[in-house]
Simulated scan of single mutants.
Amino acid sequence: MTRVDLDITINGDRQILSVEPHWTLLQVLRNELGLTGTKENCLEAECGVCTVLLDGAAVASCITLALQCRGRTVVTIEGLAPPGKLDPIQKAFIEHGAVQCGYCIPGMVMTAKSFLDEHAGERLSEEQIREGICGTLCRCTGYRKIVDAVAAAAAASVTQGQRP
């Protein structure tokens, strides 16, 4: 198959890659760039473990064609915070013990990041948080610690007047 150039910004770095038109964003991230924090699972946008931010919005990278991202900005779990630092959401997940096996956590963190950015400065109910993260499945927990972590990150952003 003929490859096509893809000009994309990933985690703040402009990349020009040669990709096959049928490749998904997930394939490019994991196989071409070695960004394996974005997990591969259902390949049908059902589980959420492959969630990344595309121009700030949470998307399932397993069903997003890489070429749909031409000229756009992608953030993966590896690029969420500067090297050696944690995003407030990552910190909250650790502080609340919301990381079990860890497989779903990158997708869950990215989903939470997008959700909290959409609702910056708002006081969120547990129901709103559960609905906001419902697209990412976790088989290890009952979501209690995850919801607590997202709530803590949201509350901290309201208190500090910052985006999570």
Rank of each mutant, 00 (worst) to 15 (best):
2 T>D: 12
3 R>F: 10
8 I>N: 13
8 I>D: 10
9 T>I: 13
11 N>Y: 11
12 G>I: 08
17 L>T: 11
17 L>P: 10
20 E>Y: 10
20 E>M: 12
21 P>N: 03
29 L>A: 14
30 R>G: 05
33 L>G: 08
33 L>A: 09
33 L>N: 08
34 G>F: 09
41 N>L: 13
42 C>V: 09
46 E>G: 14
49 V>P: 02
49 V>F: 01
49 V>K: 03
50 C>T: 07
50 C>M: 02
51 T>R: 05
55 D>N: 15
55 D>C: 11
56 G>S: 06
58 A>R: 09
60 A>N: 13
61 S>M: 06
63 I>M: 07
64 T>C: 14
68 Q>L: 11
69 C>K: 11
69 C>L: 06
71 G>M: 07
72 R>V: 12
72 R>F: 13
72 R>D: 08
73 T>H: 14
73 T>K: 14
74 V>Y: 10
77 I>W: 05
78 E>M: 09
80 L>W: 02
81 A>M: 09
82 P>F: 07
83 P>V: 11
84 G>Q: 12
88 P>C: 06
88 P>V: 01
89 I>Y: 02
90 Q>K: 07
93 F>M: 09
94 I>R: 05
95 E>W: 03
95 E>A: 14
99 V>N: 03
101 C>Q: 03
102 G>I: 05
104 C>P: 02
105 I>G: 05
105 I>K: 06
107 G>S: 03
107 G>A: 07
109 V>W: 02
114 S>W: 05
114 S>N: 04
114 S>A: 15
115 F>D: 04
115 F>I: 04
116 L>H: 00
116 L>E: 00
116 L>G: 02
120 A>F: 01
120 A>Q: 06
125 S>H: 08
125 S>Y: 06
127 E>R: 15
127 E>P: 01
128 Q>Y: 00
129 I>C: 05
129 I>R: 04
130 R>Y: 04
130 R>T: 10
130 R>L: 11
131 E>V: 12
132 G>V: 04
132 G>A: 08
133 I>S: 00
133 I>P: 02
136 T>R: 01
137 L>C: 07
137 L>H: 03
137 L>P: 09
138 C>G: 04
138 C>S: 00
139 R>I: 09
139 R>A: 02
144 R>L: 14
145 K>M: 13
146 I>S: 04
148 D>E: 15
151 A>K: 15
152 A>S: 15
153 A>T: 04
154 A>M: 05
156 A>I: 03
157 S>P: 04
158 V>G: 07
159 T>Q: 01
160 Q>P: 01
160 Q>L: 00
161 G>H: 05
162 Q>S: 09
163 R>Y: 01
164 P>I: 01
